[in-house]
């Protein structure tokens, strides 16, 4: 059986509001990043892939199994929602054990799995803590453990690093890379850095549509020739932000070095063309697809 998710012409509505428009995507083994702003439809797509939402039209197969067979899909999919949460009064190991039981794992296996997974996500010392007593990072790690408990072929993680401190974030990324070796891992994020560090293949979403798909290198290649830096006086910054897409600023004395995404060379002093970074490439991609991204990132 081929490890592959195929999504063809998928649309989804919430009431009358359309949330997904004709999504076409093929996801293969390894880490796959879904990038987009808040409200781009990432969560909706991921919930649809986890068989939590029903699509309106189109076709999805996960390793050859149509998404309509929810039971089979769930048996081979692990899902970690955006803000993972569990019955607050349960202890960490019991929560994992309970979710393992829901996954239909026999008692004898469950015991071993719970221990090994808690060790893997570094929660073994906290296994007697109640869920409500765990910190944000610990909770997220419990979340990944529960998503892995039935050894799924597909792992879907929604915004796994949001709200984590930098140290936790790096640890979490490494954990994901580790488990991605023989699975399909789909990761959604609005933090560009996460993608750069972990994913080879990515797709960019906005307003329910796929704007772009390919590898990270291709994304960067696309942006080549469109990222500039200028050295300008500080007082011009508000004006520049209004006219150009600014992806970075570095202040030195009265001058500021700004990174600008633009179709053509901006009419500013001391402007040089630079090698694109992934953030700039992402912004260029949004910009070239007609999204309004001016004003820079706050």
């Amino acid at each position: 059986m081929e490890k592959k998710i195929e999504i063809k012409n998928v649309s989804k509505f919430y009431g009358r509001k359309q949330a997904l428009f004709d999504i076409d995507l093929t996801i293969e083994q390894g880490m796959f990043g879904l990038l987009g702003r808040n409200g781009a439809g990432k969560t909706t797509l991921m919930k649809t892939l986890a068989a939590l939402h029903k699509k309106k039209s189109g076709e999805i197969t996960v390793c050859g199994v149509p998404i309509e067979k929810a039971r089979e899909i769930r048996a081979m999919t692990g899902y970690l929602p955006q803000d993972f949460s569990m019955y607050p009064s349960m202890k960490t190991d019991e929560a994992l054990d309970y979710l393992g039981a829901l996954s239909g794992i026999p008692k004898a296996d469950r015991k071993k799995k719970v221990t090994s997974l808690l060790r893997k996500v570094n929660l073994i010392e906290h296994r007697h803590k109640k869920v409500k007593e765990l910190s944000g990072g610990m909770k997220r790690r419990l979340g990944i453990a529960q998503a892995l408990i039935h050894d799924p072929t597909v792992l879907i993680v929604d915004e796994p690093t949001a709200g984590l401190d930098p140290e936790e974030r790096i640890r979490f990324r490494n954990l994901l890379c580790e488990v991605a070796e023989e699975r399909i891992v789909i990761l959604s994020t609005h933090i560009v850095g996460d993608i750069e560090a972990t994913c080879e293949n990515i797709a960019i979403m906005d307003e329910g549509r796929i704007l772009w798909k390919g590898t990270v290198e291709q994304l960067i290649d696309n942006a080549r020739g469109h990222i500039f830096t200028s050295n300008v006086e500080k007082r011009f910054i508000p004006q520049i932000k209004k006219e150009y897409i600014v992806t970075g600023m570095l202040s030195q004395n009265d001058y500021t070095t700004v990174r600008i995404v633009s179709d053509s060379e901006p009419d500013l002093p001391n402007t040089v063309l630079t090698e694109p970074d992934i953030e700039g490439a992402y912004m260029y991609c949004l910009h070239s697809s007609g999204c309004d991204v001016k004003g820079g990132e706050e």
């Binding site: 986890a50 048996a75 999919t77 692990g78 019955y87 979710l99 996954s103």
Partner: peptide, 18 residues
Amino acid sequence: MPEQNESIRDVVRSKKTA
């Protein structure tokens, strides 16, 4: 009641048992 919290519900629903 226990799954009134939507993120708990999503976790529980993503498991094989209906």
